[in-house]
């Protein structure tokens, strides 16, 4: 898949220490709105491949440490990281154009 698979193990390296901004989608396989958002994230990851932004997903069931660390209590949840810090956060399924607009502001 074109989007990054983020885990408890690689989160520090891929996201916190990333030189470019990272859009992270926290999801679970059993959550309806997450299933609808999944393909959107994939498409965006393809469209922005090679650009100054990373797009990744965290499966909350498989990665409890990262999920707890960022206070995720509602999914799908999005966190935008820049320089290791959370600079934006929003919850709930997002239309593709809205996510695109957020990405454009970052790159």
């Amino acid at each position: 898949m074109p989007e990054l698979k983020l885990t408890d193990d690689n989160f520090e390296a891929e996201v916190v220490n990333s030189k470019v901004p990272v859009l992270v989608d926290f999801f679970a396989t059993w959550c309806g709105p997450c299933q609808m958002t999944g393909p959107v994230i994939e498409e965006l990851a393809k469209e922005y491949e090679g650009k100054a932004i990373k797009i990744g997903k965290v499966n909350v069931d498989e990665n409890p440490k990262t999920t707890e660390k960022y206070g995720i209590m509602s999914i799908p949840a999005f966190r935008v990281f820049k320089g290791g810090q959370v600079v934006d956060e929003f919850v709930g399924a997002q239309p593709k154009e809205a996510l695109k607009a957020k990405i454009e502001k970052l790159i």
């Binding site: 679970a28 059993w30 959550c31 309806g32 709105p33 997450c34 069931d61 206070g71 995720i72 209590m73 509602s74 999914i75 799908p76 949840a77 956060e89 929003f90 919850v91 709930g92």
Partner: peptide, 15 residues
Amino acid sequence: RGRGVSYCATCDAPF
């Protein structure tokens, strides 16, 4: 909102 107030039980119940 999104940090304890939820409008989707099937999404958030497991937390």
